[in-house]
């Protein structure tokens, strides 16, 4: 029996580890470091209806135990992604999760429909939480009614399971989680980045061209853990957890808090092998803390 296997709506994961959206592109670059078939799944970079150029540079800044990014959803557009990127990823024995962003409900709907027509995408991740685009994105992520609306429209538009990616930039994350669960979400993905800013002492101006950016990396892990722990107690759909994961111990912490699978984002930049190494180390880590399988650990912190 595979002790790392986890089954989620639409996703039969050989292990609960996947690179997070936007931190792994469409896999090409990292496929030169290791065989992507090793991964439980791959969360693709956000897709929008049309090609987007994104924000000005600088787009990233380093912070204590993390980084800020304001890429601005640069991507070649859903058509190009379906024609050129999905077929490449389909060569690997792993699950493909398509991350969708948009500035209108119609845009989410259209992109979801297009992914639905390919045979190679296993699930959708609705990015209703990108802090780095002017319109749309974040509004869907902070207003429970809007979040529910976009979720139900996308559910209607496609047969694929839908994981809604929640923004931490809200006063009550549970309310958001419940709203999208009621609207038909098959799962949650949390958390996206926390809005932040860095001022450059030399220019005395915000360092990022977009002024604000999304904070990711180890600095946000406690926020992610707290939010997953809270949400887990109030929803019954599964959670894919993320935020500052660097090690197999971090993964176990997310599982205990209530995540059924875990995505790794920023850590890929310092160590392109991080997902692969975590997968290798996870069985030993689970054993060390008294678990036979990954599944055994899910939600243990909440239940006891």
């Amino acid at each position: 029996m595979n002790k790392l296997a986890v089954n989620l709506p639409g996703l039969h994961l050989k292990n609960p580890i996947m690179p997070a959206s936007g931190c792994f592109g469409f896999g090409r670059e990292y496929s030169e470091f290791y065989d992507l078939s090793k991964l439980g799944a791959i969360m693709m970079k956000a897709a929008t209806a049309e090609m987007r150029f994104g924000n000005g540079t600088p787009r990233v800044a380093e912070t204590t135990a993390g980084m800020l990014n304001a890429i601005g959803l640069q991507n070649p557009g859903v058509k190009e992604i379906i024609e050129n990127e999905v077929p490449f990823l389909a060569n690997f024995d792993t699950n493909i999760i398509a991350n969708i962003a948009g500035s209108t409900i119609e845009e989410y709907e259209m992109v979801a429909k297009m992914f639905n027509e390919t045979n190679d995408v296993h699930a959708l991740e609705l990015n209703i939480s990108c802090p780095n685009v002017k319109e749309g994105g974040i509004q869907f992520g902070t207003d429970p009614k809007m979040a529910a609306k976009v979720t139900s429209v996308v559910k209607e538009a496609s047969n694929l399971p839908v994981y809604v990616k929640l923004s931490p930039n809200v006063p009550d994350i549970t309310r958001m989680a419940k709203a999208v669960e009621e609207a038909g979400a098959d799962g949650l993905s949390m958390i996206n980045t926390l809005t932040g800013m860095q001022i450059d002492l030399r220019s005395k101006r915000p360092l990022l061209a977009n002024k604000t950016g999304g904070l990711s990396g180890p600095a946000i892990k406690p926020v992610a853990i707290r939010m997953i722990y809270e949400v887990k107690q109030h929803v019954s759909i599964p959670i894919i957890g993320m935020g500052g994961v660097n090690t197999a111990e971090d993964v176990l912490e997310f599982l205990l808090a209530g995540a059924s699978a875990v995505a790794v984002g920023t850590a890929n930049f310092a160590n392109p092998f991080v997902c692969s190494e975590i997968i290798d180390e996870l069985p030993e880590t689970l054993k060390k803390y008294g678990f036979d399988t990954a599944l055994d650990a899910v939600g243990k912190a909440v239940m006891e």
């Binding site: 931190c23 792994f24 592109g25 540079t57 600088p58 990233v60």
Partner: peptide, 13 residues
């Protein structure tokens, strides 16, 4: 300023 340095993150365009 770079994120990944390998072409995956779109930080350095």
């Amino acid at each position: 300023r770079m994120g990944c340095g390998v072409g995956a993150c779109f930080a350095c365009v």
